[in-house]
Amino acid sequence: MFRYIVRRLLWMIPVLFFISVITFSLAHAVPGGPFDREKALPAEIIANLNKYYGLDQPVWKQYVKYMSDILLRFDFGPVYSSRSRRVNDIFRDHLPISAQLGVLAMLIALGIGIPLGILAALKQNSFWDYLGMAVAIFGVSVPGIVLGPLLILIFALTLKWFPVAGWGTPAKMVLPSIALGMRESAIIARLTRASMLQVIREDYIRTARAKGLTERAVMIRHALKNAFIPVATILGPMFAVLVTGTFVIEQIFAIPGMGKYFITSITNRDYPVVMGTILLYAVFLVIANLAVDITYAFLDPRIRYT
């Protein structure tokens, strides 16, 4: 198991290398540059800026410089749109906030999704099932851009239970975490239900009932662990998406997270920020998937890693 984890972590190196090459070349292949404005700057100024940031060099040289800065000094480069800040500053200031929001949303997603899915499966075709699945369909089909303002309207403006926007105090964290976690909880609930329904038709569940176990023991001891295996699969990518920042929710609730840099850096051709955010997301994704694979081994003894 330990050797497997080490091997998987070593595999991250080629994976991240390819991602960096592809992202770097794609970003530079897109027409336009970081200093294009509606009112064009004088050509000399652009030339000077390009020279200052090394953008006049061939792309492969820029790539080598970029990578060696990361590897040798852990420096992810400058931010073209701001002279005083570097990509490392963005990570330091905004990543913890996005991660906080992401983890809270994930907890809400799991806390609502799994019980709802189990309940719906156990009471299949009953009131609880229909209610649970109605909530789930609502959650999947209402996007954050609608749900966020809706929550603000109801719980902040009308009921005045929570602040409208911002970040930093627990009260401010509630609405955005719900807005972000709702959709994921719906996905988890639907998958949990489907998975449970499949598992409780298995022969070994009938065997467990034939032993005289209570329905509760049958479900908790015999069904849950099996039913959780497919659910675990989707949690890895879901976690990576949530903790690296989400543009819409962070904008709606005026949260100073990473989300907006994903979008604005691309439209601004802010190459180091594009690279930084994508590599960060890739690292989270690879690690989250590794965590999921390790979880499999605990859930299912047939899965063993060597």
Partner: peptide
């Protein structure tokens, strides 16, 4: 069930819980 009357099933490959 399982006490006075016990039952064994057709397919032993699927009748035991794989995770216990």
């Amino acid at each position: 069930r399982g006490n006075k009357i016990a039952m064994i099933f057709q397919d032993p490959m699927t009748s035991l819980n794989p995770v216990l």
